[in-house]
Structures are given as structure tokens and as C-alpha cells.
């Protein structure tokens, strides 16, 4: 079971890495979702897997019986899923807005944030040839 989980996590993370490298933003976003799933499975695998008794303390007992499942990873994964869901939803809204604004969802075609600066006349043009050329053109 653990081997299967480990392989699944590996495949998920590999696919996520591939998708995250895409210039197309929706693909990159899918990559993030897959990476999150891989991380969640990793947490689940960290807390023992297999057929176990439900983690309920019997009435009168002070602690869990031996062989009970570990409830903590599931609580963690639940939290992480909720958070990941929120983040992915936000990123999706952002990508959609960007798509509406730029007419494309390709990261390379968006270059508003990192335009070269205007170079002051007092700074010698030789210091920043690229920016100066851009300005001249």
C-alpha cells in the first residue's frame, strides 16, 4: 500500500512539475493543484496506512486501543485541502481577469510589470544601453 502511495505521489509531483513549467497559466494552475494533491497524499502516507480500527476512545478507557488509525493526518489534509481550494480559486479568478485584460493567458505575453525604467538624463546612457535604446525606439 505504501509503495503504491509513494509511486502515486511521485507521478503526481512529476506531472505537476511538468505543468508548472508551462507558459500557459491555466496549465500552471493545474500543476499547482496536482502538486497540492501530492503533498496531501504525502501527509496521509506519513501517518500510517492500512486497515485499522477507527480512532475512537472506548467508553471508560483513557486512551486509544492499540492498532487504532491515526486521525491527525486526516485533519491536516482536510485543512490543507480547504486552503488549497481557496488558493486555487483565487488564482483562477486572477488568471481569468488577466485573460480578460490582456487577451491571452500566456505568461510570456504579459510584460506590464517589468518594463525597463526611464533613465534620467544625468545618468550616462552608456550605463544602461538597453533601456536607452528602448526609449529611443
Amino acid at each position: 500500500m505504501e509503495t503504491a502511495l509513494a509511486l502515486t505521489i511521485g507521478v503526481l509531483v512529476a506531472a505537476a512539475a511538468y505543468l508548472l513549467l508551462a507558459r500557459d497559466l491555466p496549465r500552471a494552475l493545474l500543476g499547482f493543484v496536482l502538486l497540492g494533491t501530492g503533498a496531501n497524499l504525502a501527509i496521509l502516507a506519513a501517518g500510517r496506512v492500512g486497515t485499522m480500527a477507527p480512532p475512537l476512545v472506548a467508553s471508560g478507557a483513557e486512551a486509544l486501543a492499540a492498532g487504532a488509525a491515526n486521525p491527525l493526518p486526516q485533519a491536516l489534509v482536510l485543512t490543507a485541502i480547504v486552503i488549497g481550494f481557496g488558493l486555487a480559486a483565487f488564482a483562477l479568478v486572477l488568471v481569468m481577469r488577466a485573460h480578460a485584460e490582456f487577451g491571452t493567458a500566456c505568461a510570456e505575453d504579459m510584460d506590464e510589470a517589468e518594463r525597463p525604467d526611464e533613465v534620467p538624463a544625468t545618468a550616462r546612457p552608456a550605463l544602461a544601453p538597453a533601456a536607452a535604446r528602448k526609449e529611443a525606439a
Binding site: F32, A39, L87, L94, A98, A107, E112
Partner: peptide, 28 residues
């Protein structure tokens, strides 16, 4: 802002997912 925001969001999303992976490993 949309362009800057996308760069910020993408890198930070991946960064925190690495955090989550590390949490899983450390818990294990």
C-alpha cells in the same frame, strides 16, 4: 498589478506547497 500579481501568486503557491510537503515528511 495583474501581471505582477500572477508572478507573485504562482511562485508563492508553489513555495507554500513545498512547505506542506515538508510538514508531511517531518510528521512522518
Amino acid at each position: 498589478q495583474l501581471d505582477g500579481g500572477i508572478r507573485y501568486v504562482m511562485l508563492n503557491l508553489v513555495g507554500t506547497t513545498f512547505f506542506l510537503l515538508a510538514v508531511g515528511l517531518l510528521y512522518g
